[in-house]
Amino acid sequence: MELTGLFFYIVSLLILGGIYALLCLALNVQWGMGGLFNAGIAGFYGVGAYTSAILTTAASGRHLGGFSMPVPMGLVGAAIVAGVTGWAVARICVRLKSDYLAMASIGIAEILRLVFVNESWLTNGSLGVSRIPRPFADFTTGRMSDVAFLGFVWVIVLLVYVATTRLYDSPWGRSLRAIRDNETSASAAGKNVEKFRVQTFVIGCAVMGIAGGLSAHYFRFLSPTATDPLLTTFLVWVMLMAGGSGNNRGAILGALSIWTIWSVTEIFTNRLPPEWATRSSFIRMLLVGLLLQVVLQRFRAGLLPEKSPPVRFRKD
């Protein structure tokens, strides 16, 4: 192992870690703050990914567009389309009690996945969208473009972190937590529960869309294999639970630590004796699963538990 290799591996780890951090922050708005059980992350992630890919690629006969727009425009588009999709879904499902919302959102993610696979005029179906540009593509080549992309991803993570932290501390965020903890009393205090929930859902979905767009630009190629629920829905839930639901720093920490464990375990399982080689990938899944069981059983509040924002009074 040489040092440059290690450096670029860490870069790639942090890029995907950053994308997961965005997904976790988004889920934290929906679940940690709003108590909405969204189990359809993959769907909104996919909507964002395809939107950004279609907006930024060069014109192609294989799918809708490309519109050759700059990458930031693609990401804005991803947030808008994923947000609007989230709004439509929220209008229908958000009144459902938590576990029913989970079922409904799994179903919606599956519907969206089938749309990606089948509507080939839109997405080129299972053959996928290729030649998706990266930001700063003109200034960097080869592996250096990963480094530039790393910066790009983490600037967005930082912006979303600042925004969600402000939201958490705002009157809006406090009302949301009141609704999460006791819906009836919040509604008795005059809060419009449904409106708050729809807003929460839309904000979360828009950020998930941005995360999807970023992965499309990172992979430079997008096909339905990128919207696998194991890696885009359930892993994100585990990350948020491990990091600390309700805590934005916990969300980022959970994303980074779980992704690192997920990725690094393969380096070790690859060093098992050869007769285990064919099984090592499955052993790795087993180890990761065990580890997560321990985390969920022993550290239920997560690495960084939720801390309620302080109550401040204006001093005259």
Partner: peptide, 23 residues
């Protein structure tokens, strides 16, 4: 071996390990 897990995320991650860590 690198396991892609049949997904784009897993494929990129496994390939990064092969070219960078395993060299």
């Amino acid at each position: 071996y690198g396991d892609t897990t049949g997904t784009a995320q897993g494929a990129v991650d496994a390939a990064q390990k092969l070219v960078n860590i395993e060299n």
